[in-house]
Structures are given as structure tokens and as C-alpha cells.
Design a protein around this nucleic acid. Structure first.
Lengths: 346, 346
DNA sequence: TTGTCTATAGCAAACGTTTCCAGTAAAGAG
DNA sequence: CTCTTTACTGGAAACGTTTGCTATAGACAA
């Protein structure tokens, strides 16, 4: 494969170093370093000369060497549970933007839903000596997070996860509130058979949503019917197979909640199979802010959270952690936005 | 802000180095390095002992130091024109996956459509000494790309861009073929007033699509009507305002092509304003693979390209470049997939 | 004039690895 | 038994920076 060697022009891949700048400007290495890094103990004349020579030679500081010497990489690792979920694109984007505004780069790694990948990702990021890690965990008992408690550590911000005993920063969405609003509204409209398809309850969002869901029923002295809950997987396949079962139930559900992107995909397929239309034969509510909903299906009711705000907040928390502040938890509100898909049924 | 200092337990942020492993194992530094890096000149016993001690101490190799010494970072920079476009999520994901399979990490940076950001991004990546850069340029006369010709360089893979005079690798989609198929089909169905909204023609995809578009007309001795072309912007606002104009034209277009995500967004809004439904009053075809189309609007005709294949191919090309191979261009096919939105109108 | 202070510059030691070179002991060849 | 070879091991230099310390020179005060 690497048979025919490159014939890239005459230029060698040899970069100009601070040493060459120093030689050409006829000053000491240390003076060049100080001049370029904005150190105060440098005369204006020296700084000017050094900068001129550096520009002339096309000097590009070696961030690797700087990192080694200074112990700081100005890099944040972002571990994402499953990048298939378009919500994460939104999240990663706003986060990267905020980090870059503060002079940090982001390394994004994807766990694809597998805990082994996640562990490898953490390990990689630590070897790369990132200054902090923002993580959306596959499961809440990640050995790596716990290890981070005892060993040498870097600041961590968890996204929508509660790890007991770990004093890490976190950004949590108040899913319960939005779901509570949504379900209350459904009940008020006369719905009783409300189905709910969502991810496994080894992570905070599921538990938290379930809490809001249950409370809405309890508030009006009704009981949740367990066989209307499909809890166990974030992926579309899980949602599809369980939505099929739910739709065949007797009595059939008159409303259905989709806990995120995978659930939405699976359910919408199941509905299509049975020729049911959201907002006509069955009420439908999507949880999470899913960017494509705004493009096409602006008639879909949703429990909204400002995903970009979550990304920005995560960036701020990690920067705080790097500055040595104590970990803290930040909560993001959610809100039920009612549109056609959950109205007028029944 | 950084007032109250962290009270992180007793562990200091001091990592164990190869030196400490050497001390504890009572061997030389160099032996530890060789033992852990798989160098052949190490006895089995030595390797075993060193590995035991390293595990025991929780040694995590410092990739920064390794990079500095070896001159290789095993990191690829990915410069994306505008991460708002969901197509790029698909692209970046498949690319990252392939890179990671080969032991590389990816740093993703977003230019947000501005050439100044793009230049800053290139500069940053070079200072970070990435081993290669994969880039979707804002415009094809990027000074940085050209500079890379003369100065010390790293391999570059361009995504859907042709930069004249620059002998860089590239992955190009054969947009023309798919657009040609699509327009030919429309013409065959009786359409004559076919509108086309797409990005500025300072980049390859626009020029290439336009080529396929024009050729389809010429093939049957028809002429493209210039006032049905809206060429100039990838963003939704541009598309919206120009789609409005197009829809008010007399005679009104009977079919409309959307050149990517932004165009699709803008056009679909304009259609909604005029209460036109795709596939009913007007034929509609979307260019590019847009992930959300498969979720909701599986009835939308589209010129498909395998975006994930593009990502994988870009990864392979950059790895080739790192191995010293000559730059080369890889072409990805496109294909017209006819669905309801472009049938049965007229 | 001498001494102290300030501003600036240079030297050299680190940061944590890899790798070249030299050295040693055991093994095999003659 | 000696010589060469083999198989390892250790020492030290290097990668490109930053930074603590020391040195110098001019300014100012006594």
C-alpha cells in the first residue's frame, strides 16, 4: 500500500522552531518565548523584532511541546453515548463553539452504545492528557468515572447522568417537569391509555421522565398501567418491536410518548405499519429537542429542552472545573409544547 | 470566579511516569519504554515484570510526550464548513469511526460558513501538529490550502472541492450524474419549468450539479431558463427568499430541486406559505443524503449519495497521505431515487 | 563615587518520552 | 580456550517549549 512514495515538491516537512527564530533575530531562546507569549519582562523593541522574524520565517508554535512543558493541553474530551442521535450533534456543536471561544479544542469520541468502547474512550482521552472530559455515559456505573475519584483525575462534567458517590459536575435536564405537563394535559383531554416508550432505566433521564409520568397520574388519583410502559432501549429496533405490541393491546393506547430519537423512529414506523396518523387516530408526543422536527413536522407536540444551552452550560462547568472550582450540578428546564399531534384525538 | 479552590480528595493531579515504573521495577528507563511499546529487543521476563509494575502503579503513557519525541500525533483535523448541515454529522461520524479503527483521533472544528474562521481553524490544527487535515472548504480559494503547497505541509483531503493548482487528495461526489437522471426524468414526465435552488457556485458541488442540470435539457434540445435558477447561498434564508420569487413566477415552476439542507429548509417553508404540497401541486427533489428524510418524509425523491462512504473514503485517503502516498481523487457515485414527491404532478 | 534598584536578557534545567550507542554476559564456533 | 555472535540492558541525547535563576547595564539616590 505504501509502495510509491510521495513526490511532494521540494519542501521538507521540517518546521521552523523557536530556536531558528532566536538565531535569525540574534537573541536568546528564552527571549523569543517571552516575546511571543506576551510575557511582561520584554522590551518593546525586542518584542517587535522577534515578531517580525517569526512572521518572516512562518513560525508556528508547537502546541505539543507547549503542552508537555506546561502540563496543559487546552483540549477537552467529549464522550458521546451514541452519535447516531441527532440531538448530540446539536449538543456537541454548541459545546465546541463555547469551548473554542475560550481557547479550547474538542476531541469528540463516540461510544456507540457500548460500555467497552466508552472505557477505551476514557482511557484514550486520559492518555492524551485532556484538561477535562464531558461525558454522556452509556450506563451510570462506569468504572472509569469511579476510578477517577481515587487516581489522578481531570475535571468531569456528566450530561444527564447521576453517578452516586461521585462528586462530579453535571448538567441535568428537568425532564420530569415537562413530561408531567404533557401527561397532565393528555389526561385532561380524556386520555387514559397512555403508552410510553423510552430507554433503559439505568440512566437518569428515563428514571426522571418516569417520575414525571407517574406523578401526573397520581395527581388525579389514577394509576399507571405497567403494560403501557416499554422501558429498556434507546434504539429504534427496540422501540419498533415494543410499539407494535403496544398498538395491538386491548384497549389500544390513545396516546403515546416517545422518549427520544430512537423511540420516535421506531414508533413512527410502527404507526405507519398500522396506518395510524399522529394527531388523528393517536396522540403523539416526542421528548427531547430533535432538530429535524422543526424542519418537517412542525406539528409534533414535544417536551422541549434547550439542547444548545446544555452544551454551553457543560462547557462552562468544565472550564470552572479546570479553574479549580468545586463540582456543581446545573439544571435545565423542560417545557411541554403542544402542537397538533397531541390535540383533537379522542 | 476561581475563588473557592477545589477540595478534591487527597489525590494530587500528579501522574505516574515511566521513570517511576523504572525505579520500582529496578530497571532502566529505556527498558520500560521498550517493554511497553512492544520493541523486540526485550526479554520475556523483563516485559512481564515491567508490565506488572506499570499496571500496579496505574501507569498511563503520556501521549503528549510521545508525540513530541516521535513527531507524530495520531490526530486528524476535520474542518467542516457548517456543522448546522446534518449531512456533516453523518460524514464526521463515519470518518471518525474509520480513523479510530486505525488508531487515530479526530479534532473537529467548525468554520460556520466564514472564511476567517476557516483560516483560524487551519492555523490551530497546524499548531497542534495534526498528522493530516480533512476539510470541507467554505470557498475554493482558501489561502491556507495554497500556502500548504509551499510551506511545510501535512496531507490534506478535500471534501467535494476542487482547488486548481493544488495537488491534494479529494473525495468528489458525481453530483452531475444524479441530477442528470433526476431532471431527465422530470422532463420525460412533461415538466418544463424546473426550478433549482442551490449554493454559491464558487464550490464544486454547485458547478457540478449545474452541469448535470443543463446537460439534461440540452440532451433533448431544450434550454435552461436562467430565471428558474437561484444560485448563491447554502443557507435557509437565501433559499426562502428566492423560493418565494420563484413560486410567484409566471408561469410558475412545476418542479423544484433543493440543493442540500439549507435549500430544503427554505423551500419547504416557502411551499407551506403558499399552501403547496410536495408531490401534489409541485414536484420536489432533494439533493444530498439528509438523514432526517428517512425518518419522516420517506416519500421525498432524492439524489442520493452514500455520505458515510464519503467519510470512510476520506479517512482512507488521509491515511494514505500519511503513509507517503501520492494524493489522489476518489469519486463517489450519486443516484436518483424516485419517490412520491416527484411523481404524479402535471 | 558608590550602592541599590529596575528593567531586561541569557543560561540551563525541566516536561516524559524514544532511540541511538555502547556495554555485558552467555552462547556458539573454531 | 579464545573469538565472534547473539541477545539483551543501561546511559544519555534529543524532541520544542517554558521558566527560575543569574547577569548586566543603566537610572537614580545617597
Amino acid at each position: 500500500m505504501a509502495s510509491k512514495k510521495s513526490e511532494h515538491g521540494p519542501s521538507v516537512n521540517q518546521r521552523v522552531t523557536i530556536r531558528e527564530v532566536a538565531a535569525k533575530a540574534e537573541v536568546a531562546l528564552s527571549s523569543v518565548s517571552r516575546a511571543l507569549s506576551g510575557h511582561p519582562d520584554v522590551s518593546d523593541e525586542m518584542r517587535k523584532r522577534v515578531k517580525e522574524v517569526a512572521d518572516e520565517l512562518g513560525y508556528e508554535p508547537n502546541l505539543i511541546a507547549q503542552s508537555l512543558r506546561s502540563g496543559v493541553t487546552r483540549t477537552i474530551g467529549f464522550v458521546v453515548r451514541d452519535i447516531n442521535n441527532p440531538m448530540f450533534a446539536l449538543l456537541a456543536r454548541s459545546c465546541e463553539q463555547e469551548l473554542r471561544r475560550n481557547g479550547y479544542s474538542m476531541i469528540l469520541v463516540n461510544s456507540d452504545g457500548h460500555i467497552e468502547n466508552e472505557n477505551r474512550n476514557f482511557s484514550l482521552l486520559r492518555r492524551r492528557r485532556v484538561d477535562g472530559i464531558i461525558a454522556s455515559l452509556v450506563s451510570e456505573d462506569s468504572p472509569y468515572i469511579k476510578k477517577n475519584l481515587t487516581g489522578p483525575r481531570c475535571p468531569i462534567v456528566l450530561l444527564d447522568r447521576e453517578v452516586k458517590g461521585v462528586n462530579a459536575s453535571a448538567v441535568l435536564a428537568d425532564h420530569a417537569a415537562g413530561v408531567h405537563q404533557a401527561v397532565t394535559q393528555l389526561i385532561k383531554s380524556g386520555h387514559r391509555e397512555i403508552a410510553f416508550v423510552t430507554g433503559s432505566n439505568n440512566v437518569y433521564p428515563t428514571r426522571n421522565r418516569l417520575h414525571g409520568f407517574t406523578k401526573a397520574f397520581e395527581d388525579v388519583n389514577l394509576k399507571v398501567q405497567p403494560d403501557l410502559l416499554a422501558i429498556g432501549g434507546f434504539d429504534a429496533d427496540y422501540a419498533l418491536s415494543h410499539a407494535r405490541i403496544l398498538l395491538n393491546r386491548n384497549p389500544a393506547p390513545t396516546a403515546i410518548l416517545a422518549g427520544g430519537h430512537g423511540a420516535l423512529m421506531g414508533i413512527s414506523r410502527a404507526l405507519k405499519e398500522k396506518n395510524l396518523t399522529m394527531g388523528k387516530e393517536i396522540a403523539f408526543i416526542a421528548l427531547d429537542q430533535l432538530p429535524y422536527l422543526e424542519v418537517f413536522s412542525d406539528n409534533i407536540s414535544t417536551v422541549y429542552r434547550d439542547t444548545e444551552a446544555i452544551g454551553r452550560e457543560a462547557a462552562l462547568l468544565i472550564l470552572e472545573g479546570i479553574e479549580g472550582e468545586k463540582p456543581r450540578v446545573s439544571v435545565i428546564e423542560t417545557e411541554f409544547i403542544e402542537r397538533a399531534s397531541s390535540q383533537g384525538v379522542i
